[in-house]
């Protein structure tokens, strides 16, 4: 009998060093990099390592996360200099011979450790009217062809993680810029055949701090954990403003 039982090999583990940018205004105004050594497995993500630190080493480490599966958009952070979701970044995919640098996303005020104040980001999102604008009474389904739906499919995937906006060098120095995420979400409605508010949104984004601030750096496209073609969406909105309609 015993022979039949397959011995499951031990899952290999390895040690990595995480350098976390810590800031706690209640303790000190000073920002410091703190290194933590953790033992992780090949299936572990940066989020798991952060959990390990918080649960086993230092309970004061603060970061946002909710779903832990790339859906809620809470845990965008700068990992080794790139904006990513901690819950979608496998540690084994990073260079583990070096310490892994984890810091908050840039361009928004840090509140504590990896937590930033997202309000300016949400403000820009609210400003583009992120809801269906239609004047008829909603008494029956608003039908749409698969082609019309496909037109804005890419931009429906946004989870508002702010990885794109906080990777944008224009946003870093000019907090007034609407930022890629707001434009992506405007795109989602501007190109929706059921929506009637395109003109309003195009007008809003023709602002001094609107789409023309975009320098086509492509940082946003590279940062988006949902693989949204952010820069392309911005370009399409620019074209729509030039034409005066989607």
């Amino acid at each position: 009998m015993v022979d039949d039982v397959k011995v499951i090999a031990e899952v290999p583990s390895f040690t990595v060093t995480l350098m976390v940018r810590r800031y706690d205004p209640e303790v000190s105004e000073e920002v410091k990099w703190v290194d933590y050594e953790v033992t992780v497995y090949g299936t572990d993500r940066v989020l798991d390592a952060l959990h390990k630190i918080k649960w086993e080493i230092d309970g004061s480490l603060t970061f946002r996360r909710s779903c832990a599966h790339g859906v809620c958009g809470s845990d965008a952070m700068r990992i080794n200099g790139r904006n990513r979701l901690a819950c979608k970044t496998l540690i084994k995919d990073l260079d583990i011979t070096q310490p892994i640098y984890v810091e908050p996303i840039k361009g928004l005020a840090v509140e504590k450790d990896l937590v930033v104040n997202m309000e300016p980001f949400y403000k820009a999102y609210r400003d583009i009217n992120p809801f269906l604008i239609a004047n008829d009474k909603p008494e029956k389904e608003r039908l749409q062809s698969p082609e019309d739906r496909a037109r804005f499919d890419d931009t429906t995937k946004c989870i508002l993680c702010a990885a794109c906006t906080t990777s944008c060098p224009v946003f870093w120095t000019d907090g007034q810029y609407f930022g890629p995420a707001a434009i992506v979400n405007a795109h989602r409605f501007i190109f929706d055949s059921r929506d009637e508010g395109a003109e309003v949104r195009l007008d809003i984004l023709n602002d001094k701090e609107g789409v023309w601030r975009c320098r086509t750096t492509f940082n946003c496209t590279e940062a988006c954990p949902r693989g949204i073609q952010v820069t392309k969406a911005i370009a399409e909105v620019k074209q729509a403003i030039l034409k005066g309609r989607p």
Partner: peptide, 20 residues
């Protein structure tokens, strides 16, 4: 027919600009 109001007040625009 019912006119559905937009649920939040319009953004105050900065003045016209030549960026385009």
């Amino acid at each position: 027919s019912i006119v559905i109001e937009t649920p939040n007040s319009p953004r105050t625009r900065s003045q016209a600009n030549l960026e385009k």
